[in-house]
Nucleic acid binder design. Structure first.
Lengths: 215, 215
DNA sequence: ATTTTACACAGGGTTTTTCCTATTTTTTTT
DNA sequence: AAAAAAAATAGGAAAAACCCTGTGTAAAAT
C-alpha cells in the first residue's frame, strides 16, 4: 500500500508519456493511467475505476478542460487529490482551479525534484503552494479596479452602487445622497445599460466582482 | 539610507521594548518609535512624522486595535508596509488584516531569525507568508457551510437562492423550478425572515458570504 | 387513527423597482 | 456670452417585488 497510484490527464501525448516516465522513477509512485482529456477521466471514474492517490491534471485541453474537470471532480469525487499542472499562469485560471479544489498548482517547467516534493506534500499534507500561487491568492484579495476602470464610474455612481448593495430602497438612497429619487433612478438606469445588467442583483454581483464592496 | 526604520505598535510595553531591542540587533534595522496603540501611531503619522520602512503591528490593543489601524493606514498611508505580529491565529482576524493590506502575518512566538527573514522579505519582495497564512487563504476559498448550517437551508431554498442571485424574476425562477410563483414567493418570504434581510440584495450578499454562489 | 407539521399554493394589496421619454439646471467648452 | 455637454430632475405607467393571511394536502409524529 506504500505505492502511490497516479493518474495523468493531458492532451499532449508526448508530454503525458514523458511525465509518466518521470513519475515512475520517483520512489513509491506509479502512473496507473493516462487520459487525453477530462472527459476520458470522467468516463473512467464513472465506470468504477479506483480513485488514484493523486491526479496530475493539465488545464488547457480539448473536449473537457481542467476547470470543467475540476468542477466535475468536486461534485462526484470531492476527496480525490489533484495537482494542476499547466502552462498558464494567469490569475483567473489559477483561482478557478483552486476554487474548485485543486490541491496545488505547478507550471509545466517545474523542476522534477520540485514536482516530487509537491506530490509528496499534496499526498501527505493535503496541499502544496508555490510562491506563484501565494502571490495570486494575495493579489486576489486586493486587485480592485479591474473592470471598474473600463466603465469609468463616477464618484456618485460608486456611492450609489455601494448603497444599493445595502438593503436600502432607492428613496432611502436618494435621501442619504441628498439627491432626488429621480436622479437616483437615472443613475440606476445608466448603470443597468452601461454594465449590461437587468436588475439590482446584477449590480451587487458587479460591485463584488470589482471590489467596490467587500463581504 | 541602508538602515531600515521600524515602528513598533504594541500595548504590551514589556514586549514592545524587548522586541525593539531584538530588532535593533538585526543588521540595518533600527526601531525609531514605539507606540502603545493604533491611535498613537495615527496621531504621529497625521502630524507629519516620516513613514517608516516597516511597521510591526500588534492586533489586540486597547483604544484602536490592529484591524482598525490597518483600515486607517490603507486609506491614508496605503504604501506603508506592515507586518502583523499577533497572538491570535483565528482565520477571521488573519483575513481581516490581509484584506486591509498587511504584507505578512506572524505569530508572536516566532523565532527571531524567522522574524528577520520576514522583515527582509516584506521590505524587499513586498510580502511574507507563512504556512499558517497560506492555509488560511486556501481555506477561505472553500470553507462553505459555516452559517449555512445554522440556518438549515433546504435543497429547494438553496436552488432558489442561487437562481435569485442571477438576474431572474421570481416568475422565471418559478418556471425553472417547476413550482408556482406563489410558492417561490413563499420561499422568498421565509428566507427574508430566517436570514433577517429586507430584500434581494441581502440574499445575494448572504449567498456570497456563505459560498452558496461564487463570483 | 388522529393530531401536528411541513409544504405548495392562492388571494389580494402595497410598495418598490424598472422603463421610457422629456425638461430644467449646471458645468464646460468655445 | 453663446453653444454644447453633462447632470439632475420629472411624469407617468407597467412590472416586479414585497407582505400578510389563509387553504388543501400529504407526510410525520403521537
Amino acid at each position: 500500500m506504500d505505492t502511490k497510484k497516479i493518474f495523468i490527464v493531458d492532451d499532449h501525448v508526448l508530454f503525458a508519456r514523458s511525465l509518466a516516465g518521470l513519475v515512475n522513477t520517483f520512489p513509491n509512485y506509479q502512473v496507473i493511467e493516462t487520459f487525453n482529456n477530462g472527459a476520458e477521466l470522467v468516463d473512467a471514474l464513472s465506470s468504477g475505476i479506483t480513485e488514484p492517490s493523486l491526479i496530475l491534471l493539465d488545464i488547457k485541453m480539448p473536449i473537457m478542460d481542467g476547470i470543467a474537470t475540476m468542477k466535475w471532480l468536486k461534485k462526484y469525487h470531492p476527496f480525490v487529490k489533484v495537482l494542476a499542472l499547466s502552462m498558464e499562469d494567469d490569475e483567473q485560471t489559477i483561482l478557478a482551479m483552486l476554487r474548485n479544489g485543486a490541491k496545488g498548482y505547478l507550471l509545466k517547467d517545474t523542476q522534477p525534484d520540485l514536482l516530487m516534493l509537491a506530490m509528496d506534500s499534496v499526498i501527505q499534507q493535503g496541499y502544496f503552494h508555490t510562491e506563484l500561487v501565494t502571490n495570486v491568492l494575495m493579489h486576489s484579495l486586493h486587485e480592485k479596479q479591474t473592470l471598474e476602470q473600463e466603465f469609468a464610474l463616477k464618484e456618485n455612481e460608486i456611492t450609489f452602487i455601494k448603497l444599493a448593495c445595502e438593503e436600502k430602497t432607492y428613496k432611502e438612497i436618494a435621501d442619504e445622497m441628498n439627491l432626488s429619487p429621480k436622479t437616483i433612478d437615472g443613475y440606476r438606469q445608466q448603470l443597468f445599460d452601461k454594465l449590461n445588467i437587468k436588475n439590482r442583483t446584477g449590480l451587487v454581483i458587479f460591485a463584488l466582482k470589482n471590489k467596490i464592496i467587500e463581504i
